[in-house]
Design a binder for these strands. Structure first.
Lengths: 128, 128
DNA sequence: TTTGACTTTTACGTCAAGGTCAACGATAGT
DNA sequence: ACTATCGTTGACCTTGACGTAAAAGTCAAA
């Protein structure tokens, strides 16, 4: 039976607009099938969209997301290509580790802020 | 002695343009001192810039970064304000945890890609 | 058959985050 | 005195990532 999703079905699920999905297609990120002119999204397309949105949330540009996608889908046969792919994977991983660190640092600071708030609250609570 | 940094000094250190720093000032993210018209950045400004760039790297907009900065610097005395601040802190932390999860998921997929590459490389290596 | 909900393409609009350029002032070295 | 270097403001320009509106096709229910 191989389910198809309509475009609005997906926009509702992910809270995005049809414009966005069409834009992603124009940008070559997704390639839904067609029946006549209308787009038919398969589960694989759906999963791809999830990955795109994930990339978006962590601040990757369309171009960067495209790169990452390329990385996923190419399983090249040739040796040189394979090594090249691996080096690109390593680059992306490095970027992600940096982002992770940035997040952890920011989280740590927010923890401090919260601590300070709690302390202050306690003082006020005692004082009154 | 209380060191001052010049604007270009900082742009060089952080690999950004003077335009960017002036823009951040216009946006109210930083408030360097002035001697006449020229900006003088103190260590505290420098640290703030580091935080701004960190926010930028993890995909926060200027507006969001401004919010986070507000959160750091307000230590409000009043109880209601304090609770409000804490709830905002918690929001931001939730966002960050989501981003971190997105990163971890993406990292995991990249690990898979790498695995696949290695396997493939081994096959080729054996085959020849 | 008309309404409503969905779809399409084309095309112009917008907003954020700076880039770029002009025109100028202050200061230091030669 | 001239030139370099660094600083300033102000104005317009660019790019990315969509928003929005127009004009039209498809299909099911009332």
């Amino acid at each position: 039976m191989n389910k198809y999703y309509s475009i609005t079905e997906l926009t509702r699920e992910f809270g995005i607009s049809t414009r966005t999905l069409r834009f992603y297609e124009d940008e070559g990120l997704i390639h839904p099938e067609r029946r006549g002119r209308t787009r038919l999204f398969r589960p694989a397309d759906r999963r791809l969209i999830q990955e795109i949105l994930r990339g978006r949330r962590i601040g990757f540009t369309i171009a960067e997301i495209r790169e990452i996608i390329q990385v996923y889908k190419d399983p090249p046969g040739e040796m040189g290509q394979l090594r090249l792919l691996m080096s690109r994977v390593e680059e992306k991983r490095e970027e992600l580790r940096q982002k992770r660190k940035d997040i952890d640092d920011t989280l740590a600071e927010l923890n401090n802020v919260e601590e300070a708030c709690l302390t202050r609250l306690a003082e006020i609570g005692v004082g009154t």
